[in-house]
Design a protein around this nucleic acid. Structure first.
Length: 317
DNA sequence: CGTTTTTGACCCGCGC
DNA sequence: GCGCGGGTCAAAAACG
């Protein structure tokens, strides 16, 4: 209970999840517009969708609906970021290209949500706790740190920490738990998920000074999908050894975006055919960002259309 | 032998 | 204040 609320407030991980559920239970056609079964989530989503309908590039949603699938498999990537509109948008693009691992063909359904809450009060401390805690611990004592002393520090830092790293979450239909995204990750934890038989794994980018983390868990609602949540942004390009020779271009300009991971790497494993099956993409843009970045959004939108014409062509006037 | 994974313990905020 | 649950640490084990 508390968890759900917390997650929703902080980022839309849970919301995403919910969206996914909606799809499963109600039908992909209704996805973005239907208020989900979950009350709280539904409210959040619907309110944002309201903006989307007005501000997002027209047709994106509709396109999706028209193309609605008869499909058996689809993606429902969703994400939200608080401070990086570009990344968010790019991510949406990449969603479509998200590969389906181990399955014969898949319909990809993309839905993007951008959380624009400017402040991160909704935030959780968790994100940076790891780094901070660790640093403090080591700083205070060698091994065991003094908890009381730390608490004082924490209180102080907690304030600063309210700033949360942008997070991106999405659902991928795959049999593989840990999707290859080009970066190197080291697993640093695993926890059982409440009400789910599937554990949640925690990964950290192994590149020095890169504090990007990601969580991976399988949906208990639909074990065929995996929910991945990225946190923060890479401050380095994809490790050379892992980068695809076929698609190295975008890496330089987008490497700092978790979203870009997929743009960069997707081509390695998905084909044009996959793209053509993309039923639709939904872009949600928070009003706050919309105002500030509307222009850029338009530009990106154009870019998107170029990259994924199959997703947009139906919408074209 | 260096790196990654496993896994129980620990920390922390939140709700009750 | 306590318990819960998410998130992280870190020692040991596993891996290549």
């Amino acid at each position: 209970m508390s968890n759900e609320t917390k997650d929703l407030n902080n980022y839309h991980y849970t919301s995403s999840y919910n969206h996914y559920n909606n799809i499963n239970n109600q039908n992909i056609l209704n996805l973005p517009y239907v208020s989900g079964p979950s009350t709280y989530n539904a409210n959040m989503i619907s309110s944002q969708i309201g903006y989307d309908l007005q501000l997002s590039p027209q047709g994106v949603y509709e396109s999706g609906f028209e193309l609605s699938p008869s499909s058996t498999e689809f993606f429902n990537p969703s994400f939200d970021q608080q401070n990086d509109f570009h990344n968010a948008f790019n991510y949406n693009t990449s969603n479509k290209s998200q590969e389906v691992v181990g399955s014969g063909g898949a319909i990809i359904e993309s839905e993007t949500r951008i959380s624009a809450s400017p402040s991160s009060e909704a935030d959780h401390h968790h994100d940076e706790d790891s780094g901070k805690s660790l640093g403090e611990r080591e700083a205070d004592d060698g091994g065991k740190y003094d908890q009381r002393a730390q608490k004082v520090v924490k209180t102080k830092k907690t304030e600063e920490k309210k700033q949360r790293e942008p997070r991106v979450s999405f659902v991928t239909k795959t049999e593989v738990e840990h999707l290859e995204d080009g970066y190197r990750w080291r697993k640093y934890g695993q926890k059982a998920v409440k009400n789910s038989p599937y554990p949640r794994s925690y990964y950290r980018c192994t590149t020095q000074k890169c504090n990007v983390k990601k969580r991976v868990e399988r949906s208990y609602q639909d074990p065929t999908v995996v929910i991945t949540t990225y946190e923060s942004q890479h401050n380095h390009p994809i490790p050379t050894s892992r980068r695809s020779a076929l698609f190295s271009g975008p890496a330089t300009s987008n490497y700092n975006s978790p979203v870009s991971d997929f743009i960069i790497n997707t081509p390695r494993s998905f084909s044009n055919d996959d793209l053509l099956r993309v039923p639709y993409a939904a872009v949600n843009v928070n009003a706050n960002y919309q105002q500030q970045q509307n222009q850029e959004f338009q530009n990106d939108y154009e870019l998107l259309k170029d990259m994924f014409p199959s997703v947009f062509f139906k919408q074209e006037p």
